[in-house]
Protein backbone atom coordinates (compact mmCIF):
# COMPACT_ATOMS: atom_id res chain seq x y z
CA UNK A 1 0.00 0.00 0.00
CA UNK A 2 2.63 2.53 0.97
CA UNK A 3 4.59 1.71 -2.14
CA UNK A 4 1.56 2.45 -4.29
CA UNK A 5 1.06 5.66 -2.39
CA UNK A 6 4.67 6.63 -2.97
CA UNK A 7 4.39 5.91 -6.69
CA UNK A 8 1.25 7.97 -6.77
CA UNK A 9 2.90 10.99 -5.17
CA UNK A 10 6.00 10.59 -7.29
CA UNK A 11 4.01 10.35 -10.53
CA UNK A 12 1.81 13.31 -9.73
CA UNK A 13 4.89 15.21 -8.62
CA UNK A 14 6.63 14.63 -11.93
CA UNK A 15 3.60 15.80 -13.85
CA UNK A 16 3.37 18.98 -11.82
CA UNK A 17 7.09 19.46 -12.35
CA UNK A 18 6.80 19.22 -16.14
CA UNK A 19 4.03 21.77 -16.07
CA UNK A 20 6.08 24.11 -13.89
CA UNK A 21 9.16 23.79 -16.12
CA UNK A 22 7.06 24.67 -19.14
CA UNK A 23 5.48 27.63 -17.41
CA UNK A 24 8.80 28.93 -16.04
CA UNK A 25 10.49 28.63 -19.40
CA UNK A 26 7.69 30.41 -21.20
CA UNK A 27 7.58 33.14 -18.58
CA UNK A 28 11.34 33.69 -18.86
CA UNK A 29 10.98 33.77 -22.64
CA UNK A 30 8.12 36.24 -22.71
CA UNK A 31 9.54 38.45 -19.96
CA UNK A 32 12.90 38.57 -21.71
CA UNK A 33 11.33 39.75 -24.96
CA UNK A 34 9.17 42.27 -23.11
CA UNK A 35 11.98 43.57 -20.94
CA UNK A 36 14.53 43.95 -23.73
CA UNK A 37 12.02 45.11 -26.27
CA UNK A 38 10.36 47.61 -23.99
CA UNK A 39 13.58 49.55 -23.49
CA UNK A 40 13.74 50.51 -27.17
CA UNK A 41 10.02 50.93 -27.72
CA UNK A 42 8.85 54.47 -28.37
CA UNK A 43 6.53 56.31 -30.74
CA UNK A 44 9.53 57.26 -32.74
CA UNK A 45 10.64 53.64 -32.97
CA UNK A 46 7.21 52.64 -34.26
CA UNK A 47 6.72 55.45 -36.70
CA UNK A 48 10.08 56.20 -38.27
CA UNK A 49 12.24 54.51 -40.87
CA UNK A 50 15.44 52.64 -40.14
CA UNK A 51 18.63 54.68 -40.44
CA UNK A 52 22.35 54.20 -40.79
CA UNK A 53 22.28 50.69 -42.28
CA UNK A 54 19.72 49.50 -39.75
CA UNK A 55 21.74 50.40 -36.69
CA UNK A 56 19.37 53.18 -35.71
CA UNK A 57 15.90 54.50 -36.37
CA UNK A 58 12.57 52.75 -36.33
CA UNK A 59 10.61 49.97 -37.92
CA UNK A 60 7.69 51.77 -39.56
CA UNK A 61 8.22 50.36 -43.08
CA UNK A 62 8.34 46.85 -41.63
CA UNK A 63 5.07 47.34 -39.77
CA UNK A 64 3.41 48.72 -42.89
CA UNK A 65 4.82 45.89 -45.01
CA UNK A 66 3.59 43.23 -42.62
CA UNK A 67 0.18 44.87 -42.54
CA UNK A 68 -0.17 44.82 -46.32
CA UNK A 69 1.19 41.31 -46.73
CA UNK A 70 -1.22 39.99 -44.12
CA UNK A 71 -4.26 41.95 -45.24
CA UNK A 72 -3.82 41.02 -48.89
CA UNK A 73 -3.18 37.37 -48.23
CA UNK A 74 -6.25 37.00 -46.03
CA UNK A 75 -8.38 38.90 -48.52
CA UNK A 76 -7.30 36.37 -51.15
CA UNK A 77 -7.59 33.27 -49.01
CA UNK A 78 -10.84 33.99 -47.18
CA UNK A 79 -13.30 33.81 -50.08
CA UNK A 80 -11.54 30.78 -51.54
CA UNK A 81 -11.55 29.08 -48.16
CA UNK A 82 -15.20 29.76 -47.43
CA UNK A 83 -16.29 28.56 -50.87
CA UNK A 84 -14.29 25.36 -50.52
CA UNK A 85 -15.75 24.74 -47.08
CA UNK A 86 -19.26 25.31 -48.45
CA UNK A 87 -18.75 22.73 -51.15
CA UNK A 88 -17.25 20.17 -48.77
CA UNK A 89 -19.88 20.61 -46.10
CA UNK A 90 -23.02 21.39 -48.05
CA UNK A 91 -22.67 19.50 -51.32
CA UNK A 92 -20.13 16.91 -50.32
CA UNK A 93 -20.40 14.78 -53.43
CA UNK A 94 -19.01 12.80 -55.14
CA UNK A 95 -17.29 11.23 -52.18
CA UNK A 96 -14.02 10.54 -54.00
CA UNK A 97 -13.72 14.21 -54.91
CA UNK A 98 -14.36 15.35 -51.36
CA UNK A 99 -11.93 12.75 -50.07
CA UNK A 100 -9.25 13.94 -52.49
CA UNK A 101 -9.81 17.56 -51.54
CA UNK A 102 -9.54 16.66 -47.86
CA UNK A 103 -6.27 14.84 -48.46
CA UNK A 104 -4.99 17.83 -50.43
CA UNK A 105 -5.93 20.22 -47.61
CA UNK A 106 -4.30 18.07 -44.94
CA UNK A 107 -1.17 17.70 -47.02
CA UNK A 108 -1.02 21.43 -47.69
CA UNK A 109 -1.40 22.10 -43.98
CA UNK A 110 1.59 19.91 -43.24
CA UNK A 111 3.99 21.32 -45.83
CA UNK A 112 6.88 23.25 -44.21
CA UNK A 113 6.61 26.96 -44.77
CA UNK A 114 10.02 27.12 -46.47
CA UNK A 115 8.60 24.97 -49.26
CA UNK A 116 5.81 27.47 -49.73
CA UNK A 117 8.57 30.03 -50.04
CA UNK A 118 10.29 27.98 -52.75
CA UNK A 119 7.01 27.45 -54.57
CA UNK A 120 6.25 31.17 -54.44
CA UNK A 121 9.69 31.96 -55.75
CA UNK A 122 9.53 29.41 -58.56
CA UNK A 123 6.00 30.28 -59.67
CA UNK A 124 5.13 33.85 -58.74
CA UNK A 125 8.57 35.45 -58.77
CA UNK A 126 10.22 33.60 -61.68
CA UNK A 127 7.55 31.93 -63.80
CA UNK A 128 4.89 34.64 -63.67
CA UNK A 129 7.55 37.36 -63.54
CA UNK A 130 5.97 39.12 -60.60
CA UNK A 131 9.45 39.59 -59.12
CA UNK A 132 10.15 39.90 -55.45
CA UNK A 133 7.13 41.96 -54.53
CA UNK A 134 4.25 42.56 -52.22
CA UNK A 135 1.93 40.58 -54.49
CA UNK A 136 4.23 37.56 -54.76
CA UNK A 137 4.53 37.45 -50.99
CA UNK A 138 0.81 37.92 -50.42
CA UNK A 139 -0.04 35.13 -52.86
CA UNK A 140 2.43 32.79 -51.17
CA UNK A 141 1.06 33.60 -47.73
CA UNK A 142 -2.50 33.21 -49.01
CA UNK A 143 -1.75 29.63 -50.01
CA UNK A 144 -0.27 29.04 -46.59
CA UNK A 145 -3.38 30.44 -44.89
CA UNK A 146 -5.84 28.57 -47.11
CA UNK A 147 -5.91 25.22 -45.27
CA UNK A 148 -6.32 26.96 -41.92
CA UNK A 149 -9.26 28.97 -43.21
CA UNK A 150 -10.91 26.02 -44.94
CA UNK A 151 -10.72 23.89 -41.81
CA UNK A 152 -12.05 26.66 -39.60
CA UNK A 153 -14.89 27.46 -42.00
CA UNK A 154 -15.90 23.86 -42.43
CA UNK A 155 -15.91 23.33 -38.68
CA UNK A 156 -18.03 26.47 -38.27
CA UNK A 157 -20.52 25.27 -40.88
CA UNK A 158 -20.63 21.86 -39.28
CA UNK A 159 -21.68 23.43 -35.99
CA UNK A 160 -24.79 24.97 -37.53
CA UNK A 161 -27.66 22.69 -36.49
CA UNK A 162 -29.33 20.73 -39.23
CA UNK A 163 -32.72 22.06 -38.10
CA UNK A 164 -31.90 25.44 -39.62
CA UNK A 165 -31.27 23.84 -42.96
CA UNK A 166 -34.48 21.83 -42.76
CA UNK A 167 -36.50 24.85 -41.72
CA UNK A 168 -35.18 26.88 -44.61
CA UNK A 169 -35.73 24.16 -47.21
CA UNK A 170 -39.21 23.47 -45.86
CA UNK A 171 -40.04 27.12 -46.47
CA UNK A 172 -39.29 26.65 -50.14
CA UNK A 173 -35.74 27.98 -50.18
CA UNK A 174 -33.28 26.49 -52.63
CA UNK A 175 -30.01 24.94 -51.52
CA UNK A 176 -28.09 28.07 -52.52
CA UNK A 177 -30.49 30.37 -50.68
CA UNK A 178 -30.28 28.17 -47.60
CA UNK A 179 -26.49 28.27 -47.65
CA UNK A 180 -26.14 31.99 -48.31
CA UNK A 181 -28.99 33.27 -46.13
CA UNK A 182 -28.98 30.86 -43.22
CA UNK A 183 -25.92 28.63 -42.97
CA UNK A 184 -23.13 31.09 -43.76
CA UNK A 185 -24.56 34.00 -41.70
CA UNK A 186 -25.02 31.66 -38.74
CA UNK A 187 -21.50 30.30 -39.06
CA UNK A 188 -19.90 33.64 -39.87
CA UNK A 189 -18.66 34.65 -36.40
CA UNK A 190 -16.88 31.31 -36.10
CA UNK A 191 -15.51 31.55 -39.62
CA UNK A 192 -14.11 34.97 -38.82
CA UNK A 193 -12.54 33.67 -35.64
CA UNK A 194 -10.70 31.13 -37.76
CA UNK A 195 -9.69 33.84 -40.19
CA UNK A 196 -8.31 36.00 -37.38
CA UNK A 197 -6.24 33.08 -36.10
CA UNK A 198 -4.92 32.66 -39.63
CA UNK A 199 -3.99 36.36 -39.66
CA UNK A 200 -1.96 35.83 -36.49
CA UNK A 201 -0.13 32.99 -38.12
CA UNK A 202 0.49 34.71 -41.45
CA UNK A 203 1.78 37.90 -39.83
CA UNK A 204 4.57 36.00 -38.10
CA UNK A 205 5.78 33.87 -41.01
CA UNK A 206 9.29 34.50 -42.23
CA UNK A 207 10.38 31.67 -44.49
CA UNK A 208 7.64 32.07 -47.15
CA UNK A 209 8.44 35.75 -47.72
CA UNK A 210 12.22 35.50 -47.65
CA UNK A 211 12.53 35.00 -51.40
CA UNK A 212 9.14 36.30 -52.51
CA UNK A 213 8.55 39.68 -50.93
CA UNK A 214 10.89 40.76 -48.22
CA UNK A 215 13.68 43.17 -48.60
CA UNK A 216 16.36 43.85 -46.20
CA UNK A 217 16.37 47.51 -45.91
CA UNK A 218 14.28 50.20 -47.44
CA UNK A 219 13.36 53.58 -46.20
CA UNK A 220 10.30 53.98 -48.34
CA UNK A 221 6.87 52.49 -47.96
CA UNK A 222 5.38 50.20 -50.62
CA UNK A 223 3.48 52.18 -53.21
CA UNK A 224 2.23 49.40 -55.41
CA UNK A 225 1.75 45.65 -55.49
CA UNK A 226 5.00 45.22 -57.37
CA UNK A 227 7.18 46.89 -54.73
CA UNK A 228 9.46 44.97 -52.42
CA UNK A 229 8.49 45.40 -48.80
CA UNK A 230 10.07 45.18 -45.42
CA UNK A 231 8.32 42.85 -42.98
CA UNK A 232 8.66 42.55 -39.24
CA UNK A 233 9.61 38.87 -38.99
CA UNK A 234 12.19 39.11 -41.74
CA UNK A 235 13.50 42.32 -40.25
CA UNK A 236 14.20 40.55 -36.96
CA UNK A 237 16.04 37.79 -38.77
CA UNK A 238 18.05 40.24 -40.84
CA UNK A 239 19.02 42.29 -37.81
CA UNK A 240 20.31 39.18 -36.08
CA UNK A 241 22.23 37.67 -38.96
CA UNK A 242 23.25 40.43 -41.34
CA UNK A 243 25.04 43.69 -40.86
CA UNK A 244 28.10 44.40 -38.85
CA UNK A 245 27.11 46.21 -35.71
CA UNK A 246 25.36 43.60 -33.64
CA UNK A 247 25.57 45.61 -30.44
CA UNK A 248 23.30 48.20 -32.02
CA UNK A 249 21.18 45.76 -34.03
CA UNK A 250 20.19 43.31 -31.30
CA UNK A 251 18.21 45.87 -29.26
CA UNK A 252 16.31 46.87 -32.41
CA UNK A 253 15.62 43.18 -33.06
CA UNK A 254 14.20 42.83 -29.56
CA UNK A 255 12.03 45.88 -30.10
CA UNK A 256 10.74 44.49 -33.40
CA UNK A 257 10.15 41.11 -31.78
CA UNK A 258 8.14 42.71 -29.02
CA UNK A 259 5.99 44.55 -31.55
CA UNK A 260 5.50 41.40 -33.61
CA UNK A 261 4.70 39.29 -30.58
CA UNK A 262 2.22 41.81 -29.23
CA UNK A 263 0.58 41.98 -32.65
CA UNK A 264 0.36 38.21 -32.98
CA UNK A 265 -0.81 37.70 -29.40
CA UNK A 266 -3.35 40.52 -29.60
CA UNK A 267 -4.78 39.15 -32.84
CA UNK A 268 -5.05 35.64 -31.42
CA UNK A 269 -6.45 36.96 -28.15
CA UNK A 270 -9.17 38.83 -30.03
CA UNK A 271 -10.12 35.65 -31.88
CA UNK A 272 -10.15 33.56 -28.73
CA UNK A 273 -12.20 36.18 -26.90
CA UNK A 274 -14.75 36.44 -29.72
CA UNK A 275 -15.12 32.68 -29.76
CA UNK A 276 -15.60 32.63 -26.01
CA UNK A 277 -18.34 35.24 -26.31
CA UNK A 278 -20.05 33.35 -29.13
CA UNK A 279 -20.07 30.16 -27.10
CA UNK A 280 -21.45 31.93 -24.08
CA UNK A 281 -24.22 33.67 -25.98
CA UNK A 282 -25.14 30.94 -28.38
CA UNK A 283 -28.65 29.63 -27.88
CA UNK A 284 -28.70 26.91 -30.50
Amino acid sequence: MSKRKLTNHLGIGIIILTFLITVVFLIVFILRIFYKGYSVLSWEFLFSSPKEAMTAGGIYPAIVGTFWLTALSIALALPMGIMTAIYLKCFGRPWWFVKTVRIAINTLAGIPSIIYGLFGMAVFVNLLKLDVSLISGALTLAILALPVIINASEEALRQVPNEFREASLALGATERQTILKVLVPTALPNILTGAILAIGRVAGETAPIMFTAATFYTRILPKSLSDEVMALPYHIYALMTEGTNSAKQVPIAYGSALVLMILALAISAIAIYIRFQIRKKRKW
Partner: peptide, 11 residues
Protein backbone atom coordinates in the same frame (compact mmCIF):
# COMPACT_ATOMS: atom_id res chain seq x y z
CA UNK B 1 -45.55 24.35 -45.20
CA UNK B 2 -44.01 22.49 -42.31
CA UNK B 3 -43.52 23.00 -38.59
CA UNK B 4 -41.08 20.79 -36.76
CA UNK B 5 -41.00 18.97 -33.47
CA UNK B 6 -38.49 21.31 -31.87
CA UNK B 7 -39.07 25.02 -32.46
CA UNK B 8 -36.35 25.97 -34.94
CA UNK B 9 -36.32 29.70 -35.54
CA UNK B 10 -33.29 31.02 -37.41
CA UNK B 11 -30.76 32.99 -35.39
Amino acid sequence: GMVFQKPNPFP
